[in-house]
Structures are given as C-alpha cells and as structure tokens.
Amino acid sequence: SKIRITWGDKTWEWDGDDEEVWKRILEWARNLGDEELWRHVKEWVDK
C-alpha cells in the first residue's frame, strides 16, 4: 500500500506502510524544516 501526504499544494507518496516507512517519513518531515508538518506526522506515527 501507499502512504500519501498532502500539505498545502504539494503531495508526496511512499510505498508501504510499515514502521520503517513511517520513520523515514518522520525524518523527511524534520529535514523539510516545517515544524507544523513534522508535528502532524508525529501524531500519525504515535497512533
């Protein structure tokens, strides 16, 4: 399956939905430097 994140007018996609993928997404969000996006992603990961 895919994980799709839409933020503003951008959309990103990742293949898979296991823990490793979420770790990569969390790292990606942090590297993007958008605090609010990172917080949202972290909330999803922690669920």
Rank of each mutant, 00 (worst) to 15 (best):
D17S: 14
S1H: 15
W28E: 01
G8Q: 10
L37T: 02
E13S: 04
H40Q: 14
I25W: 01
L26M: 10
N31H: 10
K2W: 08
W12L: 08
S1I: 15
G33Q: 09
R24W: 07
E19A: 13
D15M: 08
K2S: 09
I25N: 00
D46V: 05
I25H: 00
W38E: 11
D9K: 01
A29W: 02
D15P: 11
E20N: 12
L26F: 06
G33R: 04
N31C: 08
W14V: 04
D9A: 02
W28L: 02
G8N: 12
T11L: 09
G16R: 09
R4W: 07
K23F: 07
K23H: 11
E20L: 14
E35H: 05
R30Q: 09
V21P: 03
D15S: 09
G16L: 12
E19F: 11
K42F: 08
L37Y: 04
E35T: 05
V41P: 00
E35S: 07
E35L: 07
E43Q: 11
R4C: 09
R4M: 13
E13V: 06
V21K: 03
R24N: 14
H40L: 12
T11R: 02
G16E: 11
E36V: 05
D34Y: 07
K2Q: 06
T11M: 12
E19K: 14
D9N: 04
V41R: 00
G33W: 08
D17N: 14
E27L: 08
E20F: 13
E35W: 06
R30N: 10
E19R: 11
K2R: 12
R30H: 14
K47I: 13
R39P: 02
N31L: 15
D34L: 05
W22P: 03
R24Q: 12
I3A: 02
K10P: 01
V45R: 09
K2G: 06
W14M: 02
L26P: 00
I3V: 12
E36N: 07
R24H: 11
W44H: 08
W12H: 06
R39M: 10
K10G: 07
K23V: 12
I3W: 02
L37H: 02
E13M: 04
W14I: 04
E27P: 00
K10S: 12
D46N: 07
D15N: 12
G16W: 13
L37G: 01
E19D: 13
D9Q: 02
E20R: 07
R39E: 12
L32S: 15
G16V: 10
D15C: 04
D18H: 13
V21E: 03
R4H: 10
W14P: 01
D17W: 10
G16Y: 15
E43G: 08
I5T: 01
G33M: 09
W44M: 12
E13Y: 05
W14Y: 03
D15V: 10
I3T: 04
W12Q: 04
W12F: 13
K23N: 09
R30W: 15
E27Y: 04
V41N: 00
I5A: 01
L32M: 15
T11Q: 09
W38Q: 14
E20A: 09
G33I: 06
W7C: 03
W38N: 06
R30L: 13
R30F: 13
K42C: 10
E36A: 06
A29P: 00
W38H: 12
A29I: 04
W44E: 05
D46Q: 09
W7D: 02
E43W: 05
K23T: 14
N31G: 12
G33S: 07
I5N: 00
E36Q: 06
R39C: 08
E43D: 14
I3G: 02
E43N: 13
W28N: 00
E27M: 04
K47A: 13
K23W: 09
D46P: 07
W38Y: 15
W22D: 02
D46Y: 03
D18N: 15
W38T: 12
D34F: 07
T6E: 11
K47E: 09
K47H: 14
D15H: 07
V45M: 14
